[in-house]
């Protein structure tokens, strides 16, 4: 039974991380119908930024919690500016082009960022300091769930509530929904669509960066390639939940995280990634619009 709980909580951790990345995928898809393959790289850049900042601050002898907060803030800002720049450079010029062009541009951007970090940093795994402290009250259950995992759950929950609120109730959220539904009409009621798209990229990237920092300090190591696999998994989760739908992204991430966790725990850990992608294949065959996605009937 304890083993089951352990796997369940492990799945929850994976799911939360996937959710933080998948939200960005799904938001961008909702607004401009583009799979932003460079999104995983934003997550990786977030982790690297945090590592660099944390390195400098710990040399100065700051306390870990302060380092965690400052490193996260800088990582979020830096990654968000990356997201903004990527959109302006690689996607905006292709907005009127066929969708495939933008998709290829996204793949190119993803590779560019990976190899840029490879050259600018290193191809080795770098140790990441565990910035999240071990809480006192967690000690009795520390063998089942670690403090860093609790922090991941709570952060993901906060981010989700914040985004839901943002989309549902604020002016920019309304503008985002309007842009997603009919971009030309949104312009005609006076919405600056370019600003809305930029904002979406900024928010999505910031979310991914939070994920990057949390995962890095949870697993304790990073390299230039972590964004790729995490990005693909989050993409699977977003498709599973119904791409374009925010609750769908979260639900899909949790489903994927849990099933991965139980699969590796009860069957075999060697086939973990195979399992995730089999999930993608079956979703696409049997329910292409995802769990919560609406099946689009074409307009006549």
């Amino acid at each position: 039974m304890e083993y089951f709980i352990e796997l369940f909580l492990g799945g929850l951790t994976r799911g939360s991380i996937y959710a933080l990345i998948a939200l960005g995928y799904t938001m961008v898809y909702g607004i401009i119908q583009l799979i932003n393959f460079a999104h995983g790289e934003i997550y990786m850049i977030g982790a690297f930024t945090a590592l660099i900042v944390a390195g400098i601050l710990s040399m100065l002898g700051w306390n870990p919690v302060a380092i965690l907060i400052i490193a996260s803030v800088i990582a979020v800002v830096y990654s968000a500016s990356y997201g903004w720049t990527i959109e302006k450079l690689a996607y905006k010029p292709l907005r009127q082009a066929p969708r495939l062009s933008a998709l290829i541009s996204a793949i190119g951007m993803s590779m560019f960022l990976q190899y840029y970090v490879l050259l600018a940093q290193t191809s080795n795994f770098l140790p990441f300091p565990s910035l999240i402290p071990d809480f006192k009250f967690m000690e009795p259950i520390e063998h089942i769930v670690r403090s860093s995992e609790i922090v991941i759950y709570i952060t993901t929950a906060i981010v989700m509530v914040f985004l839901t609120f943002l989309i549902k109730f604020t002016r920019i959220g309304k503008a985002m929904r309007a842009t997603a539904q009919d971009r030309d009409m949104a312009m005609l009621v006076g919405i600056d669509v370019n600003k809305v798209i930029s904002f979406t990229f900024i928010i999505g990237s910031a979310t991914a960066a939070i994920g990057g920092v949390l995962v890095a300090s949870h697993t304790g190591q990073i390299n230039y390639y972590i964004g790729f696999i995490a990005g693909i998994k989050a993409f699977v989760a977003a498709v599973l939940g119904g791409i374009g739908s925010m609750p769908g992204a979260v639900l899909g991430s949790l489903v994927l995280g849990m099933s991965e966790s139980f699969f590796t725990g009860y069957i075999s850990s060697d086939y973990e990634d195979v399992f995730a992608f089999l999930f993608l294949v079956f979703t696409l065959i049997f329910r292409p619009s995802g769990i919560l996605g609406r099946s689009d009937t074409d307009k006549v």
């Binding site: 002016r171 309304k174 503008a175 929904r177 309007a178 539904q181 009919d182 009409m185 949104a186 009621v189 006076g190 919405i191």
Partner: peptide
């Protein structure tokens, strides 16, 4: 060309956006 998945009030509020 309304924003079909928004409420009537939201559709009008979106119009106020630019002001």
């Amino acid at each position: 060309r309304l924003f079909q998945n928004m409420t009537v009030l939201e559709n009008v509020m979106i119009g106020r956006h630019c002001r």
